[in-house]
Design a protein around this nucleic acid. Sequence first.
DNA 1: AAAGATTGATATCTCAATCTTT
DNA 2: AAAGATTGAGATATCAATCTTT
Lengths: 160, 160
Amino acid sequence: MTDELSWLPADSERLWRRWLRLNALLPAALHRQLQADADLSLPDFDVLVQLTDSPEGRVRVSDLARGLHWERSRVSHHVTRMERRGLVAREECRDDGRGAFVVLTPEGRTAIEQAAPAHVATVRRLVFDALTPHEAEVMAGVVEKVLARLEVGDPAGASA
Amino acid sequence: MTDELSWLPADSERLWRRWLRLNALLPAALHRQLQADADLSLPDFDVLVQLTDSPEGRVRVSDLARGLHWERSRVSHHVTRMERRGLVAREECRDDGRGAFVVLTPEGRTAIEQAAPAHVATVRRLVFDALTPHEAEVMAGVVEKVLARLEVGDPAGASA
DNA sequence: AAAGATTGATATCTCAATCTTT
DNA sequence: AAAGATTGAGATATCAATCTTT
């Protein structure tokens, strides 16, 4: 159409559209790199990162969901698929009979250890090598401000 | 695990993780808002924006794919679903017998005109109201730099 | 054969039950 | 009943054919 709906100021709109494009392209690039180099999807990698972040390489399903901002059912389905491939295993929870742990297997640990260097190198090359210290600082501030606004309408992550 | 793989400098890593979180939460928030207020998904909205951007409200399937950075087959499937709901229609292409146009229907135009104000208000509230002019300028520069790097390894959007 | 688009099979994600333990 | 997790059904996304026109 010739007339452009009610929209943002021109500069903001351009920034917004470029931002959206970045958020489509960057994860896609990281996904392709991981898939090609390590046969892991980006979600696979995200799960493995959560697990390696934990002291024992094991995390409760609900904590995974919170950490990843996924629904529990998505975690459960995804873990099932990763379990089939030997990357993780389930373990029952002694403290709370309802609960379940997801545990990193040796294969899973090997997978992320082999995948991480190239992944990190890609992140560095695509993003951080491009940033001046000042830019990084501004970015960090902006990200925090926007996240703060997101968490107001969505206390403690309603959908996560 | 106790030891943290090979990773980024601490500041960069924090920024990276917060950025990832932002890019998970922000689209989710926009999606919820659109769904609740206008019964449109975020991908639906993206398609409608592409169509309203075009002078006649009609775009070739391949151009949609390029503009959205989707695969053609995804466009085709999605258009089929939107067509069922009356938001768009297909139209054959006179110049090139292989081609197909996707056209905005009156219903589709109404849908996006009704959805846009609240959507834009949400974007404004969550993002742009938080930015100082200087921050916006820095962000714009950063986004461009990263996009430039992405387009090097992926000329003209290999996957789009 | 190559380009444009669609189709079908499979993988993944979401949403609403369901089941078990607290 | 509420919390933790799983399951199954339906929606959406991806990948590899397929079909038509150039």
